[in-house]
Every structure is written in structure tokens, then in C-alpha cells.
Design a protein around this nucleic acid. Structure first.
Lengths: 194, 194
DNA sequence: AAAAACAAACCAACTGGTCGGTTTGTTTTT
DNA sequence: AAAAACAAACCGACCAGTTGGTTTGTTTTT
């Protein structure tokens, strides 16, 4: 009963991730998603009340994986916490399927669709606050020099986003994961007390 | 006769920028663009042979403004060159019209459309090479410490892209321009020999 | 300088097709 | 028998692009 239902649902979700990230929300039709998942339109509308509903559900699941990664690094000293979160990034930003990044699609829709924006803006601000607090904590612990934590947090987030964007255009397998790791290392090293 | 023609063409272009950046390439229809520009579809297809042709034409113009900004900073010492390019960014990344960024739309289409990718990848690699060379030049001039120029260039580009992405979601007027300026300053300071 | 010819610029109606979404009735699975 | 999935048909809206005819400004002829 729930077994089959759950399987169908997850087939829809992984097909949707693949198509949304590959073609974009608008260009991927419900028909396409159903065809990819090998299910009927009826089944689709049994699980999601609309295409947008599906999208918001994907967004929700994705935000949860970020929260989990942050939660898992909660009690570590600041430099280790950054490193650990950086390690989790390649997974977070690839979500599932072919490993194509949904992230940009989430962001884009958030900038254009009021409902998606509403669902994203609070978590987004929370992440920025978290990174800022983590830097301040590093300063308090005596391991970081007193930089501008607000701005530095912004830049760390920016770097992650920018690298993802670049990897989107110029995909070269695991190479970008190394670049991401090296970048975080460089940023953290820059903050470390010599 | 050319007067009127040129005026129509520029009306199409500015409407297209507004709509593409506001809704995305797919969601903005040719009908919408014509309505916004206050011209007919016939006029549209007189000036551009397709919607994609219009898009490529916008991309081309945009890449030229970047080249110009880089060209203008050519002979300055490295730290000044970075600062000058950073100053030009707010203009480059806003293109025209309502000031909404077309950049993301260019990037997105490049990752999804072979033709757009072809038109973008060479300039993109050129910019990365340029920044790398600029950092090396700074090292040679004795003003920068010997960092990893390749990676640092990537990070500078990433930071710019990431900040733009953030500004897209959380628009607050000129605030992001200040953040961008401060970020470049921070990155350049980090490279400067103490 | 007026008239005629011309081509570029433009318009508005239309084409063939696809879209997301929904409904209806049937079959399979639990 | 209830839940889940299916297949097919339907719809009003919208899409990019085409067509054929009209306006506009310029050039040539008289």
C-alpha cells in the first residue's frame, strides 16, 4: 500500500529534479516528468496538487539537508565547522539524480515567484546569520583574527554560489569539488591567527 | 527611415532585457516583448530572425561591455586595475532598463543551450585568464604576495557572481554595490604585501 | 518642384502545435 | 473493498513563427 505509493512519489521527485535542473522549471512539462518517471498523469496529480506544489516540496527537502549539515557541525570549533560544512557542500548542491544542480533553479524561482521567495528567504537569512555567528565564535575562541564577520560570511556564501555557477557552465567532474574545498581552505586560512 | 528603424530596434532590446531578466527567456514570449515595446510582431521579425537570435544579440552586446571594462584597466598596476574593474561591475551587471540583471539568464541559457554556450565559453575563459594574469602581474610588480593566482582568480569571479545572485533574491538598492566594493577590497587587501 | 516608383519598415490576423491542469472511468495492488 | 495507479480525452490559453498587405520615407524621373 504505502510501499508502492512511496516508490511512485520518489520516482516523480527524482525525475523532476533531473528535468527541472536540466531544462528549468518552465521548460519541463508535467508530461515530460511523467514520461521520465514512467508513470501516468493521474498518478502525478494523486501525489502533488500542482507543478508548483511539487517544486515547493523539492525546495523544502533541499533546505532540510542544509539545515542538517549545519546542525551536524554545531558544536565543533569554528575552523573545523567550516571545513566540515565545505565537505558536505558537494552533496548538498547536487541533490540527486544526474547530479545536476537544482540550486540555481530554486534561487531563480525565488527571485521571480513570490511564493517560492517566501519559502526561501527565511532559511537564506538564517544561513547568513549562522556563518556570521560562526566567524564571531572563531574570534572569541581566539583562532580567527578580528575581520568583518558580516562581510566575510557573505563572501563565503558568495564563493560557494559562484563556484557552483561556474561548474554549471564548465562541468569537469570532480574538479570543481576540489576548487570548492581549496577555496574554503584559503578563506579560513586567511582568517586564522598566524 | 533609419531613424525610425533604429528606434524600434532599441525599443525591442530594452523591452527584451526587462522581460528576460524579470521572467526568464522561456516565460517571456515574443508577444509580451512586442506588447511591452509597443510594436508589432512583424516589426520584431523584421529586426531579429528569431527569439534566440535576439537573445544572442543581447549576449553579444553584454560581453562587449565586459571587454571594454577590462580593456580600460589594461595598463594600470594590478591593485588599481582590480579596483577599477570592481567599480565598473554595477554597471556591467545591470545592463539597462529597470536595472534587473540579465547576467543570470545568460549564464543559465549557456548551461542549457549549445549555441549560447558556444558564444559564452571563450569569453568566459578569457576573463579567467585575464584575472590570473593580472594577479601574476601584481606579484611580479612586488605589490601582491605569491598566492595561487589561478585559484584566487576563480574566487574573485565567484565572489562577484555570488554577490549578484544574492542581490537577486534580496534586492536592497545600492547596498549590494557597496558589499561588492568592500569584497573586492578585502580580497585585494588579502593579497597585498604587508 | 511635382509625380511616380521603390524598398525598407511595419502591422494585424492567422497557423499549427504545445502547454498545464483536470476529469472520467477502469484496472491493479494491497 | 479501499487505495493507488492508469489511460484517455478534454480544455482554454498560449506559444513562435508566417503571411500578405499597408504605411513611410527616400530616390528617381518627368
Amino acid at each position: 500500500m504505502q510501499q508502492r505509493s512511496e516508490e511512485t512519489r520518489s520516482k516523480i521527485i527524482s525525475s523532476a529534479i533531473r528535468l527541472f535542473s536540466g531544462r528549468g522549471f518552465n521548460a519541463a512539462s508535467v508530461d515530460d516528468i511523467c514520461a521520465e518517471a514512467g508513470i501516468s498523469k493521474g498518478a502525478f496529480y494523486h501525489h502533488f496538487k500542482s507543478k508548483q506544489d511539487l517544486f515547493l516540496s523539492l525546495l523544502d527537502g533541499w533546505l532540510k539537508t542544509i539545515d542538517n549539515a549545519i546542525e551536524a557541525a554545531k558544536d565543533k570549533p569554528a575552523p573545523e565547522a567550516f571545513t566540515q560544512i565545505a565537505e558536505a557542500f558537494p552533496y548538498i548542491f547536487k541533490t540527486a539524480g544526474e547530479g545536476l544542480p537544482m540550486f540555481l533553479e530554486f534561487w531563480l524561482q525565488a527571485s521571480r515567484d513570490e511564493t517560492v521567495w517566501q519559502a526561501s528567504v527565511e532559511p537564506y537569512r538564517r544561513y547568513h546569520k549562522y556563518f556570521t555567528a560562526l566567524i564571531k565564535k572563531g574570534v572569541d575562541e581566539g583562532s580567527f583574527v578580528a575581520v568583518n564577520p558580516e562581510l566575510t560570511a557573505r563572501m563565503i556564501i558568495s564563493t560557494g554560489m559562484g563556484l557552483l555557477l561556474q561548474s554549471l557552465m564548465d562541468p569537469q567532474g570532480a574538479k570543481w569539488e576540489k576548487v570548492a574545498r581549496d577555496s574554503v581552505k584559503m578563506l579560513v586560512d586567511g582568517m586564522l591567527k598566524k
